[in-house]
Design a protein around this nucleic acid. Sequence first.
DNA 1: CGCTGCGTTGAAATACATCAAAGAGTGTGG
DNA 2: CCACACTCTTTGATGTATTTCAACGCAGCG
Lengths: 248, 248
Amino acid sequence: MGSVSNIVNLRALRQSCADCALNQLCLPASIGGNDLDRLDHVVKQRPALERGDILFHEGLKQPALYIVRAGSLKTYVTLPEGDVQILGFHIAGELVGLDGLSEEGHRCTAEVLERTTVCEVPFESLSEVAAKVPGLQQQLFRIMSREFSRELEHPVMMGRKQAMSRLAIFLRSLSARLGGIGHDPLEITLSMSRQELANYLGLVIETVSRLFSRMQTLGVLRVDRRTLRILDPAALAMLAEKADDESG
Amino acid sequence: MGSVSNIVNLRALRQSCADCALNQLCLPASIGGNDLDRLDHVVKQRPALERGDILFHEGLKQPALYIVRAGSLKTYVTLPEGDVQILGFHIAGELVGLDGLSEEGHRCTAEVLERTTVCEVPFESLSEVAAKVPGLQQQLFRIMSREFSRELEHPVMMGRKQAMSRLAIFLRSLSARLGGIGHDPLEITLSMSRQELANYLGLVIETVSRLFSRMQTLGVLRVDRRTLRILDPAALAMLAEKADDESG
DNA sequence: CGCTGCGTTGAAATACATCAAAGAGTGTGG
DNA sequence: CCACACTCTTTGATGTATTTCAACGCAGCG
C-alpha cells in the first residue's frame, strides 16, 4: 500500500473533489459542476493521521462519513469481555463510517494503520446537501449499498471452515481492491500486523503465520515480512474455494 | 415465531402504513400525514409467501426494499462452488434488500422460511419520494445505518472460535429481536432448520445438534425440536462471552 | 406399514488452538 | 558501532474442539 502513496498524496494536496483522483469511486461521481461546489464546502480534508490514531470511536454522537484518500485503516468493535473484533480493513477510495447514521452514533471504531489521509463529511451537512441535490442522494444510496455488499464478504469468508480458504479469500479480495486503485494486484504490502489479520480472519496469530509459510512452500506466494508477491493466482483461487488441494 | 403471527396478520390486512403495527420500526416513522400518504402509494403489499419462495435473487436488476410484516426469511449468497452462505435471518419488522441499491442489483438472495407477508418498496419509487420528503430521506439513512450495524453482529459472532459462544450469541440476539416485536423473549420457535442454522453459524449440523443437547443438559435451554425455552438467561449470557464455564 | 426428511448420538480423524521457545527486525543508550 | 531490550513473527510439540463418517431415532405422510 505504500509504493504509490506519494503519488496519491500529491493529488490529495488539492482541495477540490473535482480534482481528486478518487473522484469516480467517491461521492461526487456523476454530479455536475455547481453541485460539486456545494459538496466541496462540506467535505473537510483532515491532516494526515499516523498509525494508532482514531478516526472515530464507538458511540461517538457526531457521526461523519470518511473517504480514505491514501493509506489504510481498520474498523473494529470492542466486546464486553474487552477484546476486539476487527470488522474490516479499508484502503484508498473506500468509505468508512456508514454505521454511524443511526441515532446511536458510530457503532464501531476506526483506527489508522499507517500514515493516512481522509476526507471527512459530517452527516448532518451531507444529508442537507443530499436533500438539495437529487443526484447526490441517489449516489449516496448507491455507495451505501456498495459498502453494504462489501460487508457481505466478511461473513462469507468467515463461513469457510478451512483456515487456508479464509486467508486465500482475503488475499484475493485485497489484491482486487488494490488493483482497482492502480496498484499491481500481485504485489501486496500489508498494512496490518499478523495479529490484526488473524483477528479479522477469526484465527490465532500462529495459524496465520503457518498459513503464509505453507503458501510459500506451495509456491503460491512469496512472503517477506509484510510484503507479499502472488506467484500463482490460479492456485490462490483454488485455495480460496477449497483448501484441500490435489497438488500434494 | 408462529404463536402470535396471526395477530400480526390481522393488522397486515390493512393497507395503510399509518395503521401498521410495525409503523415505528419501519420507514414511515416520524413522517407526517400527507407525506405518509405519498409513501403509501409506493408500498406494495404482496400476497403471503410460503416456505421456499424467493423474494429476490442475486443479480436481480429491479431492486426493491422489503419489510417483513409477519413470518421470517433468510438471505444468502451462492458461492462459485455451488454451496451457499446464509447471511442472516429476518423476522417481522426487519428490512431486507438494502444490498440491491447499487448498479449490480441485489447481491444476495432472499428466501422465505415459513408463511410470510412482506411490504415491497421498489427502490426507484422510494428514492423519488425520498427526494420530495426530506424527513423520509433522513429516516432512510437512519434505517440503512441500523441495518448496517445489525450486519456487524454476524462477523462478531463468527469471530468467536468456540462453537458454543456462537450459538449462544445467536440465541440471545434472536431472543432480543423477538422481544422487540412483542414476543416472549424466552420462548423461541425457530423457523430455520438445523442445517440452515449451522450454515449461518459456520458450523456443521452435527455440532449444532450437540450444542443444543449440551445446553439442555446444562439447564440453560429446554429444547423440543424447533421450540426452545430459555431457562437460564444469565447462563446463556455467560456462554455467549466464554464457552468455557466453571460450572463443570 | 414403511418410506423420507430431519435430527440426534457415537467413534474416529484432523485441523486449529495452546503452550513454549527461539529468530528477526527495530530502537535506545552506552 | 555494538549490546541490550523490546516487539513482532516464526516454528515446534502437544492438546482439544470440531469435523467427518456412520448409524440410529423420530416425526410426518402416503
